[in-house]
Amino acid sequence: MGKLYLKLLTIAFALTTVSCSLNDDDINFKYTPLEITGATLPDTFELGEVYDVNVNILRTNDCNLFDRFDVTRSFTDTSQIRTVSAIGIALEKDSCADVNDEIEDLFQFEVLYTEPYIFRFYTGDDVEGEAEFIEIEVPVKE
């Protein structure tokens, strides 16, 4: 039994070592924000309901891929604020072809508060490097 265990352990170690080897074919990437060009929200929310929020995202070249949404929460005395960014993966390749594709994806949003929600969708930075947003306010009815 001990010899069988030792053989299996040796095989497992050998496979792990081989499968973790690094080579020049590894794909390098970095995360990057993608431009949101538009979003579709209802005119009003109902408390306790879950909604699909459709978002249009600009993909400027074939090295940029959409990965996920990042939604951060903040609030004022009278509103719930959600800042939405589209997170992309930028493949580090020698050449990338321009595509200018607009893709659509969605995330689900549950209404938990009675205050109006303000959605701020990140569209990129202006010439001075300041973030710009599309802002959409949605009131909540109980």
Rank of each mutant, 00 (worst) to 15 (best):
C20F: 15
C20K: 12
S21M: 14
L22H: 05
N23S: 07
N23H: 04
N23G: 08
D24W: 07
D25L: 09
D25S: 11
I27H: 08
I27P: 00
N28E: 10
N28F: 10
N28S: 10
N28I: 08
F29A: 04
K30V: 03
Y31N: 06
T32H: 07
T32F: 05
P33S: 07
P33M: 07
L34G: 06
L34M: 07
E35A: 14
E35L: 12
T37G: 08
T37L: 12
G38Y: 03
G38F: 02
G38H: 02
A39C: 00
A39Y: 02
T40L: 06
T40C: 05
P42W: 07
D43Q: 08
D43T: 01
D43I: 04
T44N: 02
F45W: 06
F45S: 01
G48I: 07
V50S: 15
V50G: 09
Y51M: 12
D52K: 04
D52F: 12
D52R: 02
D52G: 08
N54M: 14
N54S: 14
V55I: 04
N56R: 13
I57Q: 08
R59F: 03
R59H: 10
T60P: 15
N61R: 08
N61C: 05
D62W: 08
C63Y: 00
C63A: 09
C63W: 01
C63Q: 04
C63L: 04
N64D: 14
N64K: 06
N64E: 13
L65P: 03
F66G: 04
D67F: 09
R68C: 09
F69Q: 10
F69N: 10
F69W: 13
F69T: 13
D70G: 03
V71N: 12
V71S: 13
V71L: 15
V71P: 04
V71A: 06
V71K: 11
T72S: 13
R73K: 15
S74M: 10
S74C: 03
F75A: 12
F75T: 02
T76F: 13
T76H: 05
D77G: 15
T78N: 11
